[in-house]
């Protein structure tokens, strides 16, 4: 009984990663985003729309918060010295940007609340969403501290891709219908292809075999993607260089000036995305 299992193991559930993890992981896909390099152009978001068959919902629904952008650029005006003049709606300088996608938490808050187990953790360290299993209870979305799960309130299938735009849909993943929750998958279709190719060629997946759509399109290469279980991968080296580790709720750094941090890690979500803090010249 799934419910019984959840109730019995509830107190252990989100502490599992501290005691050595839930799985024998095959991969641990992870991302590093350098906010110093991010210029907020939004190319990653556009690439994500194209790659993952995301519906364009229109202005009205966007205002209601029903947009389907798996990767959104969050904009902050956090430079108090650069106050806008009275005539400006926004200040002219000092915006900083933060690309926000599913953090693929290893102790994800969305997973235990799904009543039908449509979201679960894969041996690849990914937070999976099985669309055809989802019944649209939206518990996961309400439980996500990052607000990164998006619900199909409408059947965008017919309206969002008028002909001939339907021909540009990516056949490697489904077009979701009304009543289904969806979110960033770390481009799992590309991971799948890379793994298949590696298997066919009789080798392991190499660092750089998988490029996510956002990473590929980033003009300043702010996004780095790779496997944390590969000691030679770029992400592993970056995480090490910035003294950030998985499975912790707080990082105790030898050098506090190192820029790496994870968002909301104090909530014990154990996210797999590390951000490198933005530093501005004074």
């Amino acid at each position: 009984m799934s419910l019984q299992n959840i109730l019995n193991n509830w107190d252990k559930y989100r502490k599992g990663h501290e005691a050595g993890g839930h799985h024998v992981y095959e991969h641990m896909w992870s991302m590093v985003i350098d906010l110093n390099k991010c210029i907020g152009c939004g190319a990653c978001s556009v690439a994500c729309y194209a790659e993952n068959n995301l519906a364009v919902v229109g202005k009205d629904r966007f205002e209601k918060g029903q947009a389907m952008h798996w990767l959104r650029i969050e904009r902050y005006w956090d430079e108090p010295n650069l106050k806008p003049t009275a005539s400006d709606e926004f200040q002219q300088h000092g915006a900083s940007f933060l690309p926000m996608m599913c953090q693929q938490c290893n102790a994800a808050t969305c997973e235990p609340v799904c009543p039908v187990a449509a979201t679960y953790h894969t041996p690849d360290g990914l937070n999976a969403q099985v669309y055809n299993r989802c019944i649209g209870s939206r518990y996961c979305s309400n439980n996500c501290p990052y607000r990164l799960r998006y619900f199909n309130f409408y059947s965008f299938y017919e309206t969002s891709w008028p002909e001939p735009l339907n021909l540009q849909l990516n056949p490697d993943l489904s077009v979701r219908d009304k009543g289904v929750m969806e979110k960033c998958t770390f481009c799992v279709q590309r991971i799948r292809t890379a793994k298949d190719t590696a298997r066919r060629e009789g080798r392991k997946v190499r660092d750089g075999d998988v490029q996510t759509a956002c990473q590929q399109s980033c003009p300043t290469t702010a996004i780095v993607f790779g496997d944390m279980l590969d000691p030679e991968s770029r992400v592993t080296k970056l995480w090490k260089a910035h003294e950030v580790e998985l499975g912790k709720t707080a990082q105790h750094k030898q050098h506090p000036e190192k820029r790496g941090y994870r968002i909301f890690e104090g909530l014990n979500t154990d996210p797999c995305v590390m951000y490198l803090e933005r530093v501005r010249e004074v």
Partner: peptide, 14 residues
């Protein structure tokens, strides 16, 4: 003791 997160998933799948 590590909790096998997949237990209930695979059971319900089964």
């Amino acid at each position: 003791m590590p909790v096998n997160r997949c237990t209930w998933t695979s059971r319900s799948l089964l």
